[in-house]
């Protein structure tokens, strides 16, 4: 069996991992805590405390309905994690299956799949997701499917190239001669060796998906009120930007932390997995 590349625990990689995990950890922690407890209910309006600046009772301030921003931010993190996670899951499944099939069989199956995939990639991602959600209605489920569809071709590409490389290796040829069924070869031999290439793509995919999802929520096509999501909070906050900048700053910060965390981790992966990685 081909040697799996072990993570190079160089000090540079560790810095990235640590930084990434810290940023990511903040968001994940907010999410986990929000499952059990938030300082106030995210939907609880309180007319008496509208638009309060950050203070002891409301560390992140309140919005125009009097809702506590900290609680809303914590509850919004679950959508970010959920949507990006599920979206990547769908993209992975769709992309890996099509990519491996295309790489393994080649020929017309390959051309067909790649033509289809390239056509999808011709639409700026946001456009496609917007249209899909517009056609089928703005709901969390639709957003997940739309994003999964948009990112699947990227994963398909990675898998296809990897499969084509691995296919030429001796032990695969031996397996084929022995009469091992193609499906078994693809699942048991080709796929496990793709994981090291899929990992960075997955992490970046998570980050990009969050970017898209928050953009769509900003436009009102994603998570619907009264549920909180970072994009929606930002669009609501825009009207009050001069009076209450904290409404913009805190959701933006959380969003950036999540994406930044993911990027740092992917950098760590890149440095760690390539010998003498250049930063």
């Amino acid at each position: 069996m081909e040697q799996k590349k072990t993570k190079n625990r160089s000090p540079e990689a560790s810095i990235f991992y640590t930084a990434g995990l810290i940023f990511l950890g903040i968001v994940v922690a907010a999410f986990i805590i929000s499952l059990f407890w938030t300082p106030y209910s995210p939907d609880a309006t309180d007319a008496a405390s509208k638009l309060m600046a950050p203070c002891l009772e409301h560390p992140f301030g309140t919005d125009n309905f009097g809702r506590d921003v900290l609680s809303r931010v914590m509850s919004a993190s679950k959508y970010t994690l959920l949507i990006s996670g599920a979206g990547v899951g769908i993209a992975l499944i769709l992309g890996t299956i099509t990519g491996v099939l295309a790489g393994y069989y080649g020929g017309i199956i390959d051309r067909g799949i790649m033509l289809f995939g390239n056509s999808i990639m011709c639409f700026p991602g946001i456009l496609l997701a917007l249209v899909a959600v517009a056609v089928f209605g703005p709901s969390v489920g639709n957003v997940i499917w739309a994003l999964g569809l948009v990112f699947a071709p990227t994963f398909a590409r990675v898998c296809r190239v990897g499969t084509m490389e691995i296919k030429e290796l001796d032990y695969i040829t031996h397996a084929r001669i022995m009469g091992v069924k193609p499906l078994r070869i693809m699942a048991l031999h080709v796929f496990p060796n793709l994981t090291s290439q899929l990992l960075p793509a997955t992490v970046i995919g998570l980050a990009n998906m969050t970017l898209f999802e928050s953009g769509m929520s900003y436009l009102g096509l994603g998570v619907q009120p009264p549920d909180a999501s970072f994009g929606k909070m930002l669009s609501d906050a825009q009207a009050y930007i001069r009076v209450a900048p904290w409404l913009v700053i805190f959701p933006a910060l959380m969003l950036v932390f999540y994406i930044l965390g993911l990027y740092f981790i992917s950098e760590g992966l890149r440095v760690g997995l390539t010998k003498g990685g250049k930063r």
Binding site: S214, G215, Q238, A252, L255, V256, Y263, E267
Partner: peptide, 14 residues
Amino acid sequence: HVLFAIPPYVASLL
């Protein structure tokens, strides 16, 4: 790296 992580519309708001 940091700039990379900021979505354009967030940047525009800021």
